[in-house]
Computed example of a mutant assay.
Amino acid sequence: MYVAVKGGERAIDNAHAWLAEERRGAPDVVELSVEQIREQLAIAVNRVMAEGSLYDPDLAALAIKQARGDMIEAVFLMRAYRTTLPRFGTTFPVDTGQMRCVRRVSATFKDLPGGQILGPTFDYTHRLLDFKLAAEGDVTLAPEATEAAPEVPHVTEFLNSEGLIEEECRTDAEPPDLTREPLETPASRALRLQTLTRGDEGFLLSMAYSTQRGYGRNHAFVGELRIGVVSVEMDIPELGFSIAIGEIELTECETVNQFKGSKTEPPQFTRGYGLVFGQSERKSISMALVDRALRWKELGEDDSGAPAQDEEFVLYHADNVQATGFLEHIKLPHYVDFQSELELVRKLRREVAAKDEVT
């Protein structure tokens, strides 16, 4: 839009050059490599992969570097690149029950098969700046080699054995694909989960927090939070059988929620679910809380009018790329629109002034 302005194209080229200079920073400082970002800013990389709907740590690290650390801009870059990729097929659903966990905790059962695995977490660290990191010294390694734990069952299976938690609804129907079809409401739970898993982490955190503060109150326990690696399998028609094409890291959260029962269901626990690329605990827990809040209708609960229970509000405002585009477009030239508004206000003021003179 600025190209139409006199000198606009040259100004844009200069702005790009200035941006590249700012991105690089002081030339006497060693340039940050994509490998460094991938390995040492893994949480940021995981967020960009999740909200960009593309599992590729190298591309996510590159996007972060190109965006100068702007997470939403990096997500936008990933989404744009994703649209250029061919689709060769569809993988089978991953089996998180076969996950090799590096972290697995439960707030509902102290002793559970496979044990609690603390793993790499900030939960028990002191929130004090560690100035040793500024010295760029070697990191003290863990006393034992960090290996993924063997496959362990889901905690909710223990409750399920007693019939105390709702049965998980499973279907062979192919779920809708949010990356190919626009979002429409009312949406199935599969479509809602797709929207939430690529939604903005901050937005989902706010929505989840609101449910804990009483807006659509739904008391939740973290039945299980697990982080680990799962195998991704795909059917190869030429071979006549499926093969594992790789492994991805996932964070999965299952919440156990109170439910007083309804006209058709007895009192029992219900479920909330979150699944996110990489290590992303805050996002997966938030997703599970919001998922449960959005299920009020199918569970026969009353609508409290809380924001987190409003499907249209949550789903249409969770996407940070769409929100950013709509928000930031107002800084682009609106000269003609503003001039018409300006002339309208002047006209109205003249009419008011004329009436005042008459009276």
Rank of each mutant, 00 (worst) to 15 (best):
Q309D: 01
R103N: 05
T211S: 10
Q212Y: 12
V139M: 10
A26Q: 14
S231G: 00
N14P: 00
R226I: 06
V152S: 15
D356L: 15
F109D: 10
G25W: 09
H219I: 11
G25P: 03
S53L: 12
N320M: 15
E224V: 02
G137R: 05
P266H: 00
A67T: 09
L342H: 14
E147C: 10
E21D: 06
F158E: 14
E21Q: 07
F76E: 14
L348H: 03
L204E: 02
E351A: 11
S284P: 04
Y335P: 05
R127C: 08
D302N: 07
K263Y: 04
A244N: 11
V152E: 12
K6D: 15
R23P: 01
Q36D: 04
A17W: 13
P143H: 11
A190F: 13
R127V: 04
Q194C: 03
S106A: 01
K331M: 15
D356K: 09
T185D: 05
S286C: 02
H334L: 02
E9S: 10
F269E: 04
D177A: 05
I37V: 07
A354N: 09
L275D: 04
E311H: 01
T121K: 02
P113M: 12
I12A: 10
C169Y: 15
T90A: 11
G25Q: 10
M78S: 01
N218Q: 13
D28M: 11
E233L: 15
E233N: 14
M287G: 01
L205E: 14
T264L: 07
Y2T: 11
P186C: 07
D200E: 09
M71F: 13
D302C: 02
L133R: 06
Y316T: 08
P86V: 02
N218M: 12
R282P: 14
A44R: 11
P175C: 08
K263F: 06
G199M: 08
Y215T: 02
D302S: 06
S286H: 05
G7K: 04
V229Q: 13
L141N: 01
V152C: 08
R127T: 03
C253H: 05
E162L: 15
Q98L: 09
L205R: 15
W18E: 12
F158D: 07
T359G: 15
A288E: 10
L54Y: 01
Y55G: 06
R349C: 12
T211D: 05
F313T: 00
F109S: 14
I64Y: 03
S33W: 05
G228Q: 07
I64T: 02
M234T: 09
A148L: 00
D138G: 11
A148H: 11
G214T: 10
L141V: 05
V256Y: 05
S242V: 11
F241K: 11
W296Y: 08
L294N: 00
Q258H: 10
M71V: 14
S340T: 10
G114T: 02
M49C: 05
I117F: 05
D310C: 12
I37Q: 03
L77A: 11
